[in-house]
Computed example of a mutant assay.
Amino acid sequence: MNKEKILVVDDEEDILELVRYNLVAEGYDVVCAESGEQALEVAGSAFFDLIVLDLMLPGINGLDVAKMLRDDKKTQNIPIIMLTAKGEEADVVTGLETGADDYVTKPFSPKVLTARAKAVMRRTEKLTDEASMVIRTPDLVIDAGRRKVRVRDTETDLSFTEFQILFFLSKRPGWVFTRSQIVDAVRGDNYPVTDRSVDVQIVGLRKKLGPCGNYIETVRGVGYRFKELQ
């Protein structure tokens, strides 16, 4: 059985070695990079199961690296955990909206980081099982494998999080989900993201879906659901 391969990116040598040592001890194959430029080069040259990415990097910063990884077909589906010294919600939300799957705030426990890595890779395996799903309505097609959405035969460009929310809701038409359930399903458990953050994503998603925006219904006082077709 092949070892799961993880790319760790940090410009601080002691942190890089700390993360590498603990992940190797857990049985992972670890490759290290010390800059955003090097990370992009390495990530595009081999397959990785996970990328642990520092937010504050010289040159190309972590947020830009994450965005470039998500924009590249070779790397767009690799899960990302961001390391950040910033604990403010705005920075956390920015990282998640850029496409990160999880984050760990410095200083951190190596055991916590390892646990997060395992959880993210488990979630990714589950999403892979759903990758063949194609959800169709008369005027909306959601292709999970290609991460593409078509509204009345026109492809619509959604952000990483917008697609995740749409796919999550549309898998269970008619089911009502709270904002917390949506956050947990899209990003994992216990993210410090406010209800308002979900509302903002829904507003943007409806706008991009145009005439199909009404498929996402607000259940006042509870949350949201995907319209159940008759």
Rank of each mutant, 00 (worst) to 15 (best):
L113I: 09
V9Y: 10
G87D: 01
M68I: 14
A39W: 00
P110E: 03
L40K: 13
I202P: 00
N214K: 14
E17H: 14
T84Y: 01
D11Q: 15
S109A: 11
D71E: 14
R20N: 15
G174P: 04
E34I: 10
P173C: 07
E125R: 04
F168G: 09
R172T: 14
L57T: 07
K73H: 10
D184K: 09
G204D: 04
Y224D: 09
G223D: 08
L83S: 05
N190V: 11
R146N: 12
C32Q: 14
L113D: 08
L229Q: 13
D129M: 13
G62A: 00
L63P: 04
Q181M: 10
A43V: 08
G87N: 01
A46Y: 11
L96K: 02
V134N: 06
K118Q: 12
F177V: 11
P211D: 15
D49Y: 04
A46Q: 11
V120S: 04
G174R: 05
E26Y: 00
A144G: 10
M56I: 10
D139Q: 11
P107T: 01
F163T: 01
V186S: 02
R152F: 00
R220G: 15
V183S: 08
V134M: 02
D189E: 14
V93C: 12
F163G: 03
K73T: 11
D14P: 04
Q181A: 09
I51Y: 02
C32S: 13
T105D: 12
D153G: 03
A90N: 12
V93G: 14
R70E: 03
E37T: 10
P107D: 08
V219L: 12
V9D: 12
E97V: 03
D143A: 11
E34G: 07
T105Y: 12
R146T: 14
S132V: 02
M121H: 01
R123P: 04
N61K: 12
V141K: 14
P192Q: 09
N22D: 06
L53Q: 06
V9N: 11
A46W: 08
N77P: 05
F167R: 00
L16N: 03
T218E: 15
E12H: 15
P110L: 05
P173E: 05
A46G: 10
D143I: 07
E12L: 13
G204R: 07
I216P: 01
D101P: 05
E155F: 08
F167D: 03
N77F: 00
V203N: 13
G62Y: 04
K227R: 14
T105V: 13
R70V: 05
I81Y: 06
V92W: 05
N61C: 13
G223I: 07
A43S: 12
L166H: 00
G145W: 12
V120P: 03
A39N: 01
V30D: 02
I165G: 01
T124S: 12
E217T: 06
R70T: 06
E34L: 09
G188S: 03
E125H: 02
Q181Y: 06
L205A: 08
D102L: 05
A33F: 08
D10R: 07
I51S: 05
V141W: 13
T94H: 11
G188F: 02
D64T: 02
K67T: 07
D54A: 01
S159N: 01
V186F: 06
D10P: 06
N214Y: 13
V30M: 07
V222S: 15
L205F: 09
T218M: 15
L53F: 01
D72S: 09
T84S: 08
